[in-house]
Write a protein that binds this DNA or RNA. Structure first.
Lengths: 319, 319
DNA sequence: GTGAAAGCGCTAACAT
DNA sequence: ATGTTAGCGCTTTCAC
C-alpha cells in the first residue's frame, strides 16, 4: 500500500487503482506521527522566540520561505521570555520533535547555556554572548547603535537620551540593550563628547510603553535632551507618542532613531529613521547554518555578525 | 526503565538510582516522536494563521497561555495566505501531527471548506462564512464597523471613506472587508444618510501600505471626505501616515477609526480610536471549543460571535 | 509485480 | 518489585 501512496515505480496500474479505491472508501488518513518515527525526521523546523512580536514575525516569514522551498515546515513557538522555557527548548527532549531548532535567546545567561548538552541541529539567534560551540547569528549591535547616535550628533543633537532595555535591571549587563548602549557611548567618544548617564532612561522591556515612560521620565526629571536613541523600533513608537504628549516637535526639537527598521517604521509620523538589521541576511544565515547541521555535517561552529545600515526618514533632520 | 523515567510508583529506590545512573552515563535522550506514536497524542496544538502578524500575535499569546496551563504546547504556522496551504492545514494528514488545530481562515471560500473531510479536533477562526458542521469563532464585524462609522457621524463627519480589503477584488464579497463595509453602509442608513460608493478606496490587503494608498487615492480623485474607517488598525496606521502627508489634521479635518484595537493603537499620534474585538474572548472560546473536541466529545458545532466595543482615543473628536 | 514482515523507540500490560 | 514483551502505523527490504 505504501508503495502506491508514495508513488513508487514498480506497481501495476491495476493494483494501484484497486488500492486507491479502497483507501478512498475507508477514509484512510496517513498517520504522520508513525511516519516520523519510521523516517527519523519530522520535516519540521522550529523557530523558538521569546514572544510573538513583529520583529520575529518578519524573520519568521523569511525562514518559512527558506525552509518551505525545501519541503520543510516552519513552526513558531514562544517561550514567553521565561528562561526555563528557553532551556526546555534547548533540551534534546523538545528538540527531538523537530529536525532542527532556531532559538532566539533572550533571557538566558552564558553560564546557563553552557550547561546545555545537545547534539540535535541547533542554531542560536540573538544579541547575547553564547558558548563557542554553538552556531550563532547576531547583529552588529554596537555598530548600529553608534551609527544611530552619530547620525543625530551630526545633525546637531548634543544631549541624546537612550530609551528601552531596563538599564540597571536584573537582565542588564550582557543583554541586547547593554550592547546597544555601549554603541551609544562609543559614538559620543568618537565625536569627542561624553554620554551623560542622566540620559539613560529607566524602564524594563522593549515595547512602546517603555518608550513613552522613558520620555515621561526625562520630562519629569527636567533634564535637557534633544535626541533619543530607542533600542528597538517598538520602543521608538512609544517615544514618539511620549514626545507628542510632551509637546516636543520631531525632528525640530528632538531627533529620534530606532533599531530594527520594522515595516512599521515607514508609517509613523514622521517616518522613523532606524537601523536596519538586514533581516534577509539574518534569516539566510540562520537557515543555512541549520541546514548544514541537519545534513549531518559537524563543521566548525560559525558565529555570524550581520552588518547593519541606517535608513533615514523624517525623525532625523536633513544633513 | 520507562517506569523510572515517568516516576511510576512501584519502583525500588535502589533500582531507580541505578537506572538513572545508567541513563545519565549513556546520555540517553527520550525520543518524542516514538512517544507520540505510542501515546496517540503529541500534546501540541497548532494555530494556523494566514501570516505572522500583530493581530495574530496577540491572540497566539493568549492561546499559548490557555494551552500551556494544561501542559500542552502551542505552535504557530503560517499559510502565507495561500488557499492551498489553508486546505493542506485542514487535511487530516497535517492534522495528525497535532492534538488539535485552530485555523484562521482568510483565503478559502465556503465551497472549498465544504469539501474538507476531517474528523480531527478543529476550530475555525475568522471573518468568513464556514459550513455549519465546524466550530467557528468570529467577531461581530458588521456591528463593529457600524459602531465606528456611527461614532464619526455623531461628531460631525458626513463624508466617511472606507479603506482596506480590496473592494471589488477577487477575494471580495464574502471576506472580512466586505462584511465590515456592510456595517459602514448600515450605519449611514441608521442615520438617514447614504454611503457614497465614491468613498470606497481601492487597494488589496490590510497592511499600512493599503491605508496610505487609499488616502492618496482620495486626494488624487479630489473627492470630498472628512472621515476614514480603516478595516484594520494596521490599515489605519497607513491612513494616518497618508493624512499627514496630505496635510490633513486628525481629528479636526478628518476623523479616523480602526478595527482590532492593537496594542499599537494606544501609541499612534494621535491615539487611534478603534473597535476592540475582545481578543480575550476570541482566544477563550477558541481554546474551549478545541478542548472539548480533544476530549473526545462530539457535541453540536458551536458558532460563536464575539461582541465588540469601541475604544475612543484621539483620532475622533470629543462628543 | 506483489505481498509479507521487520523494526523505528516508546510504554502499558503482563509474567516472573 | 522487577524484567519482558506486544504493538502503536509506517516504510523498506526481502521472499515469492
Amino acid at each position: 500500500m505504501s508503495n502506491v501512496l508514495n508513488d513508487r515505480p514498480r506497481v501495476g496500474k491495476e493494483t494501484r487503482a484497486r488500492v486507491l479505491d479502497v483507501v478512498a472508501h475507508l477514509g484512510y488518513e496517513i498517520n504522520l506521527t508513525a511516519r516520523h518515527l519510521r523516517a527519523g525526521r519530522t520535516d519540521t523546523v522550529a523557530f523558538v522566540v521569546p514572544g510573538f512580536q513583529t520583529y520575529f514575525d518578519e524573520i519568521a516569514d523569511r525562514l518559512a520561505a527558506a525552509f518551505g522551498a525545501q519541503g520543510r515546515h516552519l513552526v513558531v513557538e514562544s517561550t514567553g521570555a521565561r528562561p526555563e522555557n528557553e532551556l526546555a527548548a534547548l533540551s534534546s527532549v523538545r528538540l527531538s520533535m523537530y529536525d532542527g531548532v532556531i532559538l532566539s535567546v533572550a533571557g538566558l545567561t552564558l553560564t546557563e547555556i553552557e550547561g546545555v548538552r545537545t547534539t540535535a541541529p541547533l542554531v542560536l539567534l540573538g544579541e547575547v554572548e553564547v558558548p563557542e560551540r554553538f552556531d550563532h547569528v547576531m547583529l552588529a549591535n554596537a555598530e548600529g547603535a553608534a551609527l544611530a547616535t552619530a547620525r543625530m550628533l551630526a545633525t546637531g543633537s548634543r544631549r541624546i537620551a537612550i530609551a528601552g532595555g531596563d538599564p540597571g535591571g536584573p537582565h542588564d549587563g550582557a543583554g541586547m540593550a547593554a550592547i546597544r548602549r555601549a554603541g551609544w557611548v562609543r559614538a559620543h567618544e568618537g565625536a569627542g563628547l561624553t554620554a551623560d548617564p542622566a540620559l539613560v532612561a529607566p524602564g524594563a522591556g522593549v515595547g512602546p510603553e517603555v518608550g513613552r515612560e522613558a520620555v515621561r521620565h526625562l520630562e519629569r526629571s527636567g533634564v535637557d535632551y534633544d535626541g533619543v536613541f530607542a533600542v528597538t523600533d517598538s520602543t521608538a513608537v512609544g517615544v514618539l507618542a511620549g514626545l507628542a504628549e510632551a509637546g516636543r516637535r520631531v525632528p525640530q526639537d528632538v531627533q529620534v532613531v530606532g533599531f530594527d527598521n520594522l515595516d512599521l517604521a515607514e508609517f509613523t509620523v514622521p517616518g522613523l529613521t532606524s537601523v536596519d538589521p538586514g533581516r534577509d541576511a539574518v534569516a539566510h544565515h540562520a537557515a543555512r547554518l541549520l541546514q548544514r547541521r541537519i545534513d549531518g555535517a559537524t563543521p566548525e561552529p560559525e558565529h555570524v555578525v550581520v552588518p547593519v545600515r541606517l535608513v533615514e526618514r523624517g525623525t532625523t533632520r536633513a544633513s
